[in-house]
């Protein structure tokens, strides 16, 4: 009959080499109770048992390999990033572009204001030259229709007059 330690040692070796699947549930339970009672054994076991079971380690490595992108995928991803960068950059330059448009618009507006001020301030010549009215009229004789009345009416301050005939029928 083997000693419990020998059975324990076998169980430990089996756990280290093949994982806990190598033990029966009863053995696992008993091993766990022993390790609880023997902290020194637990420490030794910790030194000897790999952090990850081999099978688990293989499974994890395989999963990682599957999840890692391939080289071509990495290239395509970087290409997409590089293509997206100018668009992003353009989007971020909208503000300065709008400001650049405002400069010529402001210049045009300023020119219009100046032109309007010049037009308003510049005295414009009359559309037709003013009439030169006689200012030194000398009447030698004046006859009107029977019943009508002539008037000499001053217009303006220059001495100009109009001969106005007030008709009797008016």
């Amino acid at each position: 009959m083997s000693r419990p330690v020998d059975n324990l040692d076998d169980a430990l070796q089996a756990a280290i080499s093949r994982g806990l699947d190598a033990l029966t549930p009863d053995q696992v339970e008993r091993l766990a109770a022993i390790l609880d009672e023997r902290p020194d054994l637990a420490a030794q076991l910790a030194d000897r048992i790999p952090v990850i079971e081999p099978q688990l380690a293989d499974a994890l490595a395989q999963a990682e390999r599957q999840s890692l992108p391939s080289t071509g995928a990495w290239s395509r991803a970087w290409d997409r990033i590089a293509d997206a960068q100018p668009k992003v950059a353009r989007r971020t330059r909208v503000g300065p572009q709008i400001l650049r448009l405002w400069r010529p618009l402001a210049a045009v507006a300023a020119c219009l204001v100046l032109a309007a001020a010049w037009w308003i301030g510049t005295p414009r010549p009359p559309t037709a030259p003013p009439l030169r009215l006689a200012t030194d009229l000398e009447i030698d004789r004046l006859e009107v229709y029977d019943g009508d009345t002539p008037f000499v009416v001053s217009i303006g301050d220059s001495g100009a007059v109009i001969i106005w005939v007030l008709e009797e029928r008016s």
Partner: peptide, 10 residues
Amino acid sequence: PRMNIEYKLE
């Protein structure tokens, strides 16, 4: 005539 006038002007 409605008006008959003789006059001098510039």
